[in-house]
Amino acid sequence: MRSILARVCSVKEICTECRFRKTTTDPERIKERREHIACLKTDILHRVPCRSDQTEYEDGDQPFCRGAAVYMVKKGMKNALLKAAIEEGFMREDDLKREADLVVD
């Protein structure tokens, strides 16, 4: 599990083109954001893949979108993956909270 979390949590900052940024104006990214938010509310394992880091590992894992992680902490809706990442030290909740002003409400 630790190696999976290390790979999944490899994105250390919100991408400039992140669909969760307040400054995002691209209609397609805004649509994707709405769809992901709906999934985050209902699926405790939903992981939004990072658009800027297109790495796909042989087992199908992709890095977790940092903006989505920040959004989830901001909204108080941490799912199982994010909780495990924080508990195991692959993401720090304080760091995610510091980036909260960058993502949508």
Score class of each variant (00 low, 15 high):
R7S: 13
D43T: 10
T23L: 11
T24A: 14
K97G: 14
A85D: 00
L45Q: 12
C39Y: 06
K74V: 03
K83A: 11
C18D: 09
L102G: 12
Y71V: 04
R33Y: 02
L40Y: 12
M1N: 15
R2K: 15
G67R: 00
R21W: 01
F90I: 00
G76D: 11
R2Q: 15
K31R: 14
T24K: 10
E99F: 05
I37D: 06
L45Y: 15
K97V: 15
D26M: 06
R29W: 03
V48Q: 05
L82G: 01
F90W: 03
V70N: 03
E56C: 13
D61G: 02
V70Q: 01
I4G: 03
S52D: 07
L96Q: 03
K75Y: 01
F90P: 00
H36T: 07
D94K: 11
E13Q: 10
M77T: 14
S3T: 10
Q54V: 13
I30W: 05
H46K: 12
A100Y: 11
A80K: 08
S52W: 07
T23P: 05
E32T: 06
L45N: 15
K12L: 10
V103D: 03
P49Y: 03
E35Q: 13
K97L: 15
R2F: 11
M72N: 00
R66C: 04
G89K: 03
